[in-house]
Nucleic acid binder design. Structure first.
Lengths: 197, 197
DNA sequence: TAGCGTTGTCAACAAGCGTTGGCCAACAGG
DNA sequence: CCTGTTGGCCAACGCTTGTTGACAACGCTA
């Protein structure tokens, strides 16, 4: 009803003047959710970070949960791994995720909230299947086992992320990225390409 | 000053009439923290579960954070693994943690809150070093690497716990305990006994 | 210029929170 | 018996939260 062309409503909406505000809110929200988790991250604090009024958040995202849903639409940015040999897949995967995790806070935000609240209802599973699944399928010998292998790989990656980026265990944060890759790559490689356990 | 015997105050305090109430509060608190996380678990709800007044929680545990500290003093109940051969250590460790995790909710509570709030300040690290460290040291060839190996093992165990018990990814919850042991045991075994990566 | 939809500000709301202090019943010791 | 301590409930405080609605500036179109 807010659209201007009644015939074709599938076209890309022309840029609005408020897009910068929307983006500012989203950026601040991601950072706050990552730093504080869902409950501690208040709309007022997010609005203050974004330099606008708390009411604007409500106007543009409807509610706090709506804002979070918008803030946690994560893109893992999986490369296509076209030129990667099968024996290098584990290392490539681990390295990609470490870099991705350090690139911005959105992954930490998503993970923090995925654990703190049961609001997910299989969203994380879908995210894994859709984004990581195809990569796993490229290297995995048994197509029927792709979901399980994906989950196993995720367990190792997520566990390392929890210790290094969320809880920030000193021993783990002190390790270099290359050290972590060297240790985890064989694990992921095995989950990826080894025969059944 | 509240003690009755001035000469020896190290003796075990005689049981008080309120011990059952204290225990009820603690049990309810662990369950609520595990289910809802730190912020969503309200003192009022915990008191309701325990069948007492919210004010009692304050009287016995001082504050909500005090209650949480009491509720999250986790005992991993590590066996001594005396009769375990070195090649079986990985499997034994994974199996123990899976059973321990399913035994009661306190581990999930601790992990959930460890991530949801930055209140920890190295408590998790200390917990690992103190409780898991000795077991790792028993099987690890290089004593200097015990902290790092402990952290690596923790990353795999914690990651699996996050997916299976906190987020409850369907693919992971559908796996049997034996399947998970079969997949994770070699990983932990390698972190435990293999030479540097 | 008048009109209208879009941006934004401000003040207030109801609800829920952690926390406090006062009051009463049950018990223990003399 | 009286008295002090302990265990427990109740009502209230101060505060923060998410959310709402009224209202003023802006920009476009006719």
């Amino acid at each position: 009803m807010t659209e201007n062309s009644p015939s074709a409503d599938a076209g890309p909406p022309r840029p609005r003047r408020s897009d910068t505000t929307r983006a500012a809110i989203l950026t601040a929200a991601i950072a706050r959710f990552a730093a504080d988790g869902y409950e501690r991250a208040t709309i007022r604090a997010i609005a203050r970070d974004a330099g606008i009024d708390p009411a604007m958040v409500m106007r543009y995202y409807g509610s706090k949960e709506g804002l979070f849903r918008a803030a946690s639409e994560i893109d893992l940015r999986m490369p296509d791994f076209a030129g990667v040999r099968s024996e290098e897949a584990g290392e490539a995967l681990v390295r990609h995720f470490l870099e991705r995790w350090e690139a911005d806070d959105s992954l930490a935000a998503m993970l923090r909230v995925a654990m703190a609240s049961g609001l997910d209802e299989g969203r994380q599973q879908a995210l894994l299947e859709r984004q990581v699944g195809p990569t796993v399928a490229r290297f995995c010998p048994a197509p029927a086992e792709v979901p399980r292998r994906t989950a196993l790989i995720a367990s190792q990656i997520v566990g390392m992320a929890v210790l290094r980026y969320l809880i920030q265990v000193p021993t783990v944060t002190a390790m270099t990225r290359d050290e972590i890759v060297a240790w985890l790559a064989p694990t992921v490689q095995r989950y990826l390409t080894a025969d059944g356990p």
